[in-house]
Design a binder for these strands. Structure first.
Lengths: 212, 212
DNA sequence: GATTACTTGTTTGCGACAAGCAAGTCGTTG
DNA sequence: CAACGACTTGCTTGTCGCAAACAAGTAATC
């Protein structure tokens, strides 16, 4: 089984499997090291070796430290996007915002290491000269656009007053999420307080997005 | 003039002046390099030389890169605290929050480089293993405490309904500020949008802190 | 003469990259 | 269809440049 069959259309598998596996193992290694040691103190050498390979593989595969971090951000970002689209499917307006907010909180609880690493990289990407700045900026823009669309569709569906400024509220919502995530990163132990912040955010959104 | 007078009580001046001056020049150099190149790419060597000294002075004075950044955060943090106490003196409740919000926006406009460097360091301090994490955490706690006090004093003074949860609203306010600052750092050009976010925040606070 | 501000020399460790090796892949031919 | 050989790919090892950290030195200040 698994012999070198196929000549085209389907890609060869065995080598591809190997890289997929080493990618996955290095992702886990990187997440763990980022959460434990931080971005600065994490070395490409350690990532390779913790994943069970040589000291050089991480550098070879991703080209640079920034390349590795890009990969981490993309991977976990996609993970989140899948979850988000699943949860908000078919929903609009306040309902969609509420579902997204709840999913975000759940994501923090269920995969804390992945989410922590993701946002540690996120916040670190702010300064100039960060290789994965664009990746983060793209995710951020996409998030803001999605929220705006939900609000607009809520307005069009007659469930939200046309008087609200969708763009402004979307910006405010995204900023609030960032703020909450910051609090969570700084005080990982205070989960109940974080949950209450998510609740407050939902309440505030209901205030800001009244029925017509 | 400026001879070695005084024997006690007043500190010696000439040497102290020298360090004060080199501190100040290195602070400016560090701010500039952080804003231009980012934290990672800023080197102690460049800081010393840009300040007009040798390649080694920054390392010698602050002990380590983290030590330099601690100094930067403390210096600009104190700058802000002075401004904040000046602006909110004698005010309580929504009035104090409004004044603080306005001052924060003004600070971003008037000393953008200092504030940018400050918050770039702030966000970078989140991950583990950051030497100035405690400094930032302290500022953050103090900020939250101040806000809570303003709200409590507003309640005691009969200008805010006793039904509001001062702690929760304070947390929410600080999170919102963080979120707004994030947006500003990422999109420096969109100042009008940032200003509108500050306005929205003030409006939201008025909604959340109603009169009794 | 002692302390202090600052400079210079040296070590160590990481990121980056080039060169190498072995396993895997694929076209071709008998 | 099996077996050979050319090529590709995944991974490892060797090396260089550079920055942080620190020790030892010099000259100004006290």
């Amino acid at each position: 089984m698994g012999q070198p069959a196929l000549k085209s259309g389907v890609l060869p598998r065995r080598q591809a499997d190997r890289t997929a596996q080493s990618d996955a193992r290095m992702l886990e290694a990187a997440v763990r090291l980022i959460v434990e040691r931080g971005i600065e103190r994490t070395t490409l050498k350690e990532v390779g070796e913790l994943a069970g390979y040589s000291r050089g593989l991480a550098g070879y595969r991703f080209g640079s430290k920034g390349g590795l971090y890009s990969f981490v951000v993309k991977s976990i970002g996609e993970e989140w996007i899948r979850e988000l689209t699943r949860v908000t499917e078919g929903k609009v307006g306040v309902e969609a915002l509420t579902a997204a907010t709840d999913a975000h909180y759940r994501f923090c609880v269920e995969a804390p290491d992945h989410v922590r690493a993701f946002y540690i990289l996120w916040f670190e990407s702010i300064g100039p000269g960060s290789e994965y700045k664009d990746v983060i900026a793209g995710i951020h823009r996409r998030r803001q656009r999605d929220v705006m669309e939900w609000i607009r569709m809520g307005i069009d569906g007659g469930r939200i007053s046309p008087a609200v400024n969708a763009e402004k509220v979307a910006r405010q919502f995204c900023a609030a999420i960032i703020g909450i995530v910051y609090q969570w990163l700084v005080n990982p132990g205070e989960l109940p307080e974080i949950e209450s912040m998510y609740s407050e955010l939902k309440r505030t959104m209901q205030l800001l997005l009244p029925a017509p």
